[in-house]
Design a protein around this nucleic acid. Structure first.
Length: 682
DNA sequence: TACGTGGCGCTTTTT
DNA sequence: GCGCCACGTA
């Protein structure tokens, strides 16, 4: 008798990932939810990233083609890391997932369709510095005499434009409500705007807002293109939805219009970007726009000790505008309440932080598990000096942006004129690097080349009559341009950077800067990084869109890593609270928790902005896993050497005092012969 | 017209 | 304590 065996063809799909075991109930239901719109309210430390990552893995394992998944995150790094984690989970190639920030995905899509919105595919992306310069030129062109009558600075104008764009408002409507003191200048500001818009189009350049605006325009005004992308993205996931603005929400709605498989994840209590148009009501109105949306909540906090969470909850509960939430700590108490440390002044504050960090280090906490957070960059000044004095290695995640330093901008400007010969800002910058060429000469030369069909070819012509007086320097410049577009170097950004360095720029740096060697090293690293790009334009886009966040994924070098030369060493992190979003450390110090500093006096216009500052405070507290130290100076000496009494932050008063442990700091008297490190007694 | 020096005014957060 | 702008000089 033969046993009959039937091979079952239709076995239930076997998933590689054990979703049930890896996730809690809340996360599991999010990850395995069916199709259709999903709203996920995820508290701080509730494993939101995990839920999103597993959701993507689930989709892939369920047979969704990775190239039809759109994953929008707040930073490009976040997207990269999530995709990498998905890859290790499902062990298949998921690099086709469309992941990144709104801006970087806009860039990828707009390159394909540039012509249909009157751009060329090699358009330049203007960073805020470039945009400012172009606005300055537009103010000038508008014939506005900025001296005769007080006219807002280019930076402020740029803010106004950006605010209007991101709120989807006309400038004339937004001025009275948000910039009443400039209302009388409305006609001039609108004129500058018209010139600026035209100028960007002529120069084949987009600023950050244009990337969003043009993406939306493309979807709305080119129905066949809109349909294509709405069809392409079968599943859409948006992280940090509370910090999206109106245009971004509209873009998502347009893209989701066909399949309606859109999952948005966010926490209204952590919305901290309204100053650039973020609109956390997007979360509240999601269900109005998607009536059939399923709602989920992640309220189990895996990150922080209950003592930290209690203080954070007490603080955020003062906000009127928020969804009620109860975050439950799962980690056990260690009986240690967050420490509140009044310091004599900012020097003592710095000494305390540095001293305490050394103690923690001795207790076995690596420096990389410690962060110092603050409201504004300059709050870290004294601390940086103290850390340097005591040889404590640190990295700063805020402040001067790497890609906005002069030497980086100089070198990338050469690449920019090659990639987009209409790039006015870049042309003027490189022209002014030629000795004896200043503003006037550079403008004159630009006038000549701006009308040319082929600006590069024109400059290379020997009879080009706009050359400046210093003929040798001009010859050198022409030779460099020739080299950059030679077949050997074209679209090889690494080779181009090397050529720029060897054709006089290195010498220029040595003659100009004290720290020329550091800058040259920066540029060599930049060249190193550039080597992986297949075209100059691709490389430039990456630089314009990536910020200087610097926690590197182990396997991949990113532009951020170039910034400080990798992170192989154990280093303390100094960061603005904004840049700390989404991150966590065992030990967190929040310094300058003084009223007027945090909340910042400038931001306290109305109750709305006070609530935003409070959310920022909440973000700061919820970064801490084990221990939290909040410090503030009692007096501050301002620049005119006046001492000003500081009050603790109002946010501290709002938290019941017994949720803090107050430390009183005393300094050991410095005896002869002892080391100069103050001993801090708690 | 390029580039060096003195006075004034003021610090938010960033794709 | 510093960066930006305006002015004067080569």
């Amino acid at each position: 008798m033969t046993k009959r065996y039937v091979i079952k063809r239709d076995t239930p799909r076997r998933f590689l990932v054990n979703y049930r075991a890896d996730l809690n109930d809340e996360q599991y239901s999010v990850v395995t939810a069916g199709a259709g719109p999903l709203l996920v309210i995820a508290g701080a430390g509730s494993g939101k990233t995990r839920a999103v990552t597993y959701r993507v893995a689930w989709l892939v394992e369920s047979g969704v083609d990775p190239s039809r998944i759109l994953l929008v995150t707040f930073t490009n790094r976040a997207a990269r890391e999530m995709i990498r984690r998905v890859e290790t989970l499902v062990q298949s190639d998921v690099r086709k997932i469309w992941g990144g920030t709104f801006h970087s995905i806009a860039n990828r899509i707009l390159r394909r369709h540039a012509q249909s919105i009157d751009y060329l595919p090699n358009f330049t992306i203007l960073d805020s510095e470039d945009a400012k310069e172009l606005i300055e030129l537009s103010i000038h062109d508008a014939g506005i005499d900025t001296k005769a009558r007080r006219f807002p600075k280019p930076e402020v104008i740029s803010d106004i434009f950006s605010f209007a764009t991101n709120r989807d408002m006309m400038i004339r409507d937004c001025l009275p409500r948000h910039y009443p003191h400039f209302e009388h200048l409305s006609p001039q500001i609108e004129q500058v705007d018209r010139i600026y818009q035209a100028r960007k189009l002529e120069r084949n350049a987009m600023d950050y807002d244009d990337l969003l605006l043009n993406w939306k325009r493309l979807l709305v005004e080119k129905p066949e293109t809109g349909d294509y992308w709405a069809d392409q993205f079968q599943y859409i996931l948006v992280d940090e939805y509370q910090d999206t603005n109106k245009i971004q929400a509209e873009i998502i709605d347009l893209l989701a219009s066909r399949h309606r498989n859109v999952m948005v994840v966010g926490d209204d209590a952590q919305s901290i970007y309204s100053f650039r148009g973020a609109h956390f009501a997007n979360i509240y109105t999601f269900k109005d726009r998607y009536a059939d949306a399923q709602e989920f909540r992640l309220e189990t906090n895996y990150r922080s000790r209950p003592e930290i969470l209690m203080a954070a909850n007490a603080s955020i509960s003062q906000n009127r505008k928020q969804l009620p939430k109860t975050l439950r700590a799962v980690r056990p108490s260690i009986g240690q309440a967050p420490a509140l440390i009044p310091c004599r002044d900012s020097d003592q504050q710095a000494a305390f932080v540095a001293g305490r960090i050394l103690e923690l280090r001795q207790d076995g906490v690596p420096l990389s598990d410690i962060a110092v957070l603050y409201r504004s960059h300059w709050h870290a000044m004294e601390l940086q000096m103290e850390l340097t004095r005591r040889d404590i290695p640190y990295t700063v995640r805020s402040g001067i942006r790497f890609f906005e330093q002069a030497h980086i901008k100089d070198v990338t400007s050469y690449l920019r004129i090659v990639a987009n010969p209409k790039d006015e800002i870049a042309w003027k910058r490189v022209l002014k690097l030629i000795p004896s060429v200043g503003n006037a000469t550079a403008s004159r030369i630009w006038e000549r080349i701006s009308f040319a069909e082929e600006p590069l070819a024109l400059v290379l012509r020997s009879d080009f009559e706009a050359r400046p007086r210093a003929a040798d320097a001009w010859q050198e410049f022409v030779k460099l341009i020739e080299g950059l577009i030679s077949p050997d170097n074209i679209d090889r950004p690494a080779a181009q950077i090397a050529l720029i360095l060897s054709s006089g720029y290195e010498a220029y740096l040595e003659n100009t800067y004290e720290n020329a060697d550091l800058r040259i090293e920066d540029l060599r690293q930049l060249a190193n990084y550039a080597a992986r790009f297949g075209s100059t334009q691709e490389f430039l886009s990456e630089l314009a869109l990536v910020n200087t966040e610097r926690f590197s994924a182990p396997q991949t070098t990113t532009a951020e890593d170039v910034v400080m030369g990798g992170d192989e060493d154990e280093k303390l992190v100094l960061s603005s609270v904004h840049q700390a979003k989404g991150l966590e450390w065992k030990e967190v110090f929040l310094i300058w928790a003084a009223d007027g500093k945090f909340p910042s006096a400038r931001s306290l216009r109305d109750s709305e902005s006070e609530e935003e500052e409070r959310r920022l405070f909440y973000v700061a507290l919820t970064r801490a896993k084990d221990e939290l130290y909040i410090t503030y100076p009692l007096v501050v000496t301002d620049w005119s050497r006046q001492t000003v009494i500081q009050k603790p932050s109002r946010f501290i008063y709002e938290v019941p005092r017994d949720l803090f442990e107050v430390w009183s700091v005393e300094e050991e008297s410095i005896d002869a012969g002892s080391d100069d490190t103050p001993q801090l007694i708690n």
